[in-house]
Design a protein around this nucleic acid. Structure first.
Lengths: 178, 178
DNA sequence: GTATTCATGTAAAAAGTTACATGATTAT
DNA sequence: ATAATCATGTAACTTTTTACATGAATAC
């Protein structure tokens, strides 16, 4: 249900194609909602028939035609209404924690190996977020509104990764003490 | 797919009924995987027919009969094997971040109100985790193995909530400056 | 020449949520 | 009296994932 609103939120600041929404799932909206391209095209179809978004076909000579979607005023109203409804808490889904919870069933060394792998991934992600911060939000005072609010979500990502890594270091050190 | 393993991980340390798994979803496994009781009963049925778990019917006079499930050695092997496979990263699903991302569409005061509500929830959750830490993990040195690994996951929860709250305070202060 | 990027979809299967269903006991 | 707890399920629906499908252009 929220995917609709995630798409609206992404489109309201900048009209895009389904392809752009799917591929930039790693940067903007992808940080708080993930979806495959199949799901996105489907939702775009539904949002269109609800008249919450509208598309403009763009012919290209060297590339397949594309449809650029933008939010209608009805769609923007619906989004604003939804924003003020109390958010439902995100469902906890964390494979790694299941693995750690029952981690006494496997040799500690091997468990530490998968842990090290995760640390590498999270470190990389944190670096990526910090790079975005430096590039686009160097002077975080007086940004245009859309960027100001995007920055808050980026900060969430940075806090999350820093907290994750702190926990990982703590846990690794406990694991290494046999 | 992971629900199967979450259930195995919960049952391996202590045999339980479906009802207990569903209701204690708030404490042990519920921290890293949530599911409704319908889903849990369904998975218990599948795990049984796969012979990864086995149940013992217990007749009660004052209560409905119950089935206590425990993990078979085949199930334990499968769980151990799965633990050592590289974990897939958790899908990002965070309604609140969508709302903040497009938060410039609504009056800041009203956005801050839902934010305050979330802060209250997270504060409460952190208190709960800290209480568990004090009650059950006061001397975190030399714990039995099952508890030692459970403690790591609790620590994750504590780190998460602390990081979340730090971010929330930062964001609220930015929002209040106009 | 092989892989990746651009560009959009359909179809089937799996996972998860919501609604419906029952029924006794205990706490307020 | 009413709500909550114990105890287990079926059925329908929605959401998400995986597989299948096409086709040109560009980068390595």
């Amino acid at each position: 249900m929220s995917l609709k609103y995630a798409i609206l939120a992404a489109l309201v600041s900048k009209p895009r194609t389904g392809y752009e929404l799917s591929s930039k799932i790693d940067s903007s909206i992808g940080f708080f909602w993930t979806a495959t391209h199949q799901q996105i095209y489907k939702e775009l179809g539904e949002l269109s028939s609800m008249k919450w978004i509208r598309s403009r076909q763009v012919k290209q000579k060297e590339r397949p035609d594309k449809k650029i979607y933008r939010v209608t005023s009805a769609g923007q109203n619906e989004l604003a209404k939804w924003i003020l409804e109390p958010p439902s808490q995100p469902p906890a889904k964390d494979e790694l924690l299941i693995k750690i919870f029952a981690g006494y069933l496997v040799p500690t060394k091997q468990l530490m190996r998968i842990f090290e792998n995760e640390i590498a991934k999270h470190t990389e992600r944190l670096q990526r977020y910090l790079a975005i911060q430096n590039e686009h939000f160097a002077n975080s005072e007086k940004l245009p509104d859309t960027l100001r609010f995007q920055y808050f979500t980026l900060r969430r990502g940075i806090h999350f990764e820093e907290g994750w890594l702190k926990w990982a270091v703590e846990t690794m050190s406990a694991l290494s003490k046999n």
